[in-house]
């Protein structure tokens, strides 16, 4: 009788203690669980030959990760590196356990391989400045290339006063985005009866190569205006125009907001720039990636605004804000 009572008492006490321990442990565990949420690691793979556009994207992405509490890995490339290195870096990032990958792909193969690898790992891929979708690419943030081309065409027509010959400098590789720019520009110029569009030259990412190409083009062609689809082409073209001492004679309209382009614009070697904002690209890219990782539905495509600037309006407040990343 006595022993049974003692056993009952001890067991009751034990149960109470166990209960207390469990309660305390659960409290502690819940507290820890909240604190330990692994931060999202978002990898931004810069475009090859990125220039200032890449820096602006990086700034935007940094602002976004700060806001959303993620981590950013920015992978940049040396000027001599190209598609192959970008692909290697992208695959390494996915292998390294990236939560999401933002990429401005140098080519189809890069995007295809990366998207394949990333979807195998379950990491969403966001393309920047590129509309080429691939299987495994969840969303794109890009300017409307055709619309940008149209804006460039309009600007050119305005510069030429509605009549003249326009030479187009295009990249030496197939790039659907550049083709869309050309399509837009040609469509806009086609509306002006006095304007003839001719094929000018093709060059890659090297300023010198483009200079050579421009030289040959201008040697053979009597053009009133030149439309450079890429920044490097515009720089080479401007170099050649300067060499010839014909600044301002040849009206040059191009794309991009590189520092050199801005200088040339103020010098009068370039006349109109169609610009887009790299900061927004980086920021929205990270934002989309965070949304995807949180399981939200996102738009397949986000279109960014492009704007035509010239030496006169480049310091207007709105254009300043777009052209010069705010250093913070």
């Amino acid at each position: 009788m006595n022993r049974r009572l003692a056993i009952a008492r001890i067991s009751l006490l034990g149960t109470a203690l166990l209960l207390a321990a469990v309660l305390l442990a659960s409290c502690r565990a819940a507290g820890l669980g909240e604190a330990e949420k692994a931060p999202m690691r978002i990898v931004l793979i810069a475009p090859v030959h990125a220039g200032e556009q890449g820096d602006a994207m990086r700034l935007g992405a940094e602002a976004a990760v700060k806001e959303f509490g993620a981590e950013l890995d920015y992978i940049a490339f040396e000027p001599h590196e190209d598609e192959k290195e970008q692909l290697a870096a992208a695959l390494a990032a996915v292998e390294g356990g990236a939560s999401a990958v933002l990429i401005d792909p140098a080519g189809d193969e890069v995007l295809g391989a990366l998207a394949h690898e990333a979807s195998a790992q379950g990491a969403p891929v966001v393309t920047l400045n590129d509309e080429r979708g691939a299987k495994g690419v969840q969303t794109s943030i890009t300017a409307d290339y055709e619309e940008a081309g149209r804006q460039a065409g309009e600007a050119m027509a305005e510069l030429l006063g509605g009549s003249g010959t326009v030479a187009v400098m295009r990249p030496d590789r197939p790039d659907p985005d550049m083709e869309r720019r050309e399509v837009g520009a040609r469509a806009a110029l086609a509306e002006y009866a006095g304007i003839t569009v001719t094929d000018g030259a093709a060059c890659g990412n090297s300023r010198d190569a483009c200079w050579q190409a421009a030289k040959q083009m201008l040697d053979h062609l009597k053009a009133d205006g030149a439309l450079a689809l890429e920044a490097s082409a515009s720089l080479g073209l401007a170099d050649e125009v300067k060499r010839r001492g014909e600044q301002g004679k040849l009206k040059i309209v191009t794309f991009g907001s590189e520092m050199e382009q801005l200088e040339l614009l103020q010098e009068g070697s370039l006349h109109k720039l169609v610009v887009q904002n790299g900061f927004s690209t980086g920021y929205l890219g990270v934002k989309q990636a965070v949304s995807l990782l949180s399981g939200e539905r996102v738009d397949k495509l986000i279109r960014l605004e492009t704007r035509v600037i010239d030496a006169d309006n480049m310091f207007w407040m709105n254009n300043q804000k777009m052209l010069f990343p705010f250093v913070q």
Binding site: G60, A63, E67, N277, F279, S280, Y283, K321, F326, Q328
Partner: peptide, 11 residues
């Protein structure tokens, strides 16, 4: 503004 660029971009 601490997020001045975002404000400038209208984001």
């Amino acid at each position: 503004h601490p997020q001045q660029q975002l404000i400038y971009m209208g984001l």
